[in-house]
Design a protein around this nucleic acid. Structure first.
Lengths: 184, 184
DNA sequence: AACAAGAGAGACCGATTGGTCTACTTATAG
DNA sequence: CTATAAGTAGACCAATCGGTCTCTCTTGTT
């Protein structure tokens, strides 16, 4: 594993567990054993590292989610597979996402305002909604598919938040039941 | 307004806008004009102030939500009124909650781990779910009311997260439609 | 009038923050 | 062989963090 990848990987783990502002550069350096000079050779600032971490997580998460959806088929079946995937995540059955601690993008978004971080979080959420919409567009009108995708996103966000903050690990199952009713 | 109240009120505003770790004690002092000695006379530490701010927001939010629910009637009507209230909040029609910037408890929870803050956030969420359940217990069995209250909470959390992170200000209307189908 | 308490201004503290710099070691490629 | 780049160790920097302390002024109580 290259030094930049090691830094990103470790920084993500610490940021995800403790929050971005709560983790200092020196903590990441100690954890990785990388020299400070090396970090600043690859990243111009902590902010640049944070943005790299967000893109890294976006990549990991999207790959996982889309492959779970594609494996379930097409259309509504793929959309409903989201909630089975979330259920596995909540119960720590998805090693590549690390032990469940809520949505990293929601947490990161809450720590900044009017910042590049917010734009990256927004883009991540839009990408997911767009992918959902693409899976619904053959079953109904484009307009309706867009509306449905937004509603499915509400259920997905709700399940994650409820599982994390309220500790309701079965939230994905409830969300799936509502999604089934919604998609008919 | 007493000094402690002024500090709590101002600290909340800053924490809500910028995040808890991102706002230092001195910023709060400058904003309020209160002396550092006075702050530490009333609060033993920043952590103590943070906890006071969480309890303050819990009080404001619960008062607002429960009064909106009670004004709409009882049972399912009260539960569905949650989503009308959220819609007003998202569109900044609720001055006492300040301009909408997501759920303060979700944000605060994300900045700490294994901390008194997390326990306060959990309690806040449980209080709301319990109040929802109390409004459903006359319409159905106690067991079913508990399940329904959890599902309604998923919709509520989803609407807030989606409105804030993805900027979908109509999320409450979508959530309400799903709640109607659920309670149907 | 006397006095204790509350509050303000702000100097000061050690620790930590993000970030720079020098000096030295490795490793790879022409 | 040599030149260039990557990496290490860690001293160092100004700024800021949360928190303490002294000194002064004001306020209300008796």
């Amino acid at each position: 594993m290259t030094k930049p990848d090691l830094l990103i990987h470790t920084a993500f783990k610490l940021f995800y567990e403790q929050g971005i502002h709560a983790v200092g550069i020196n903590t990441i350096l100690n954890e990785t054993g990388v020299a400070k000079k090396t970090l600043y050779h690859h990243f111009s600032s902590k902010e640049a590292l944070v943005e790299a971490v967000l893109k890294y997580r976006d990549h990991i998460f999207m790959d996982w989610l889309t492959s779970r959806m594609l494996a379930a088929g097409e259309g509504k079946a793929a959309v409903l597979a989201i909630f089975d995937a979330l259920d596995d995540w909540f119960h720590n059955q998805v090693p590549e996402l690390l032990p469940f601690k809520g949505c990293f993008f929601v947490k990161a978004n809450g720590e900044f305002s009017n910042h590049a971080v917010n734009a990256l979080c927004l883009r991540h959420k839009h990408n997911i909604t767009s992918f959902i919409q693409a899976n619904l567009v053959n079953s109904t009108s484009a307009l309706h598919a867009a509306e449905l995708a937004q509603s499915i996103s509400v259920l997905k966000e709700g399940a994650i938040a409820q599982a994390y903050v309220a500790g309701d690990l079965e939230a994905a199952k409830r969300a799936k039941a509502m999604a089934v009713a919604l998609l008919g």
